[in-house]
Amino acid sequence: MSESIFTFVERCVGCKSCEVACAVEHSRSKVLASAMRETPRPRPRVRVQPAMNYTFPSRCVHCEDPACVAACPTGAMTEDLATGTVRVNDDRCIGCWMCVTVCPFGAVTENPETGTAHKCDLCPERTARGEDPACVAACPTGALIYSTAERFADERRKITALSTVGVSTEAPGNVTLWRSLRGGYQR
């Protein structure tokens, strides 16, 4: 089973480190200081968004039977059948935005500078080297992990199991408090 990125939403504190790391990884220089000055501007393919009291790193989940691939009329959006990774081929993309219109996660966006669809590609260069995708590597709280669906499900099960035998798996009290207090103004 191939690996993908999974999210423990309860561990996200909304620092946006993933956004920065993603943009840098998809720059030419791959160095923050110079990436910022590149044209076209490297853009993150993950966006941390408010979700009531929580924050959520919103990103392509590389769906099974992806709607964007079905909707793409130019063959630019493809699914690697071996790994399940969904990627855009910029050369074929004409920017018709059908993929944006059908993505149920809001994870495919328009890149106004290139006029092409824009989404998570699971960092092919990094993963080829055996490294985690940039957002996962940058996440300081372990909210993002690069794993197989099975291992992620195992982790989740472990958390459930621990809590049923009385081991607290809740967020620390101060974090719960902070989340409860920010709900009022987070837009």
């Binding site: 620092c15 924050t55 987070q186 837009r187």
Partner: peptide
């Protein structure tokens, strides 16, 4: 601008 800025960083808030 607040809306664009949201969510704001949890480390900063903590």
């Amino acid at each position: 601008r607040l809306k664009e800025m949201s969510p704001q960083c949890g480390f900063g808030e903590l």
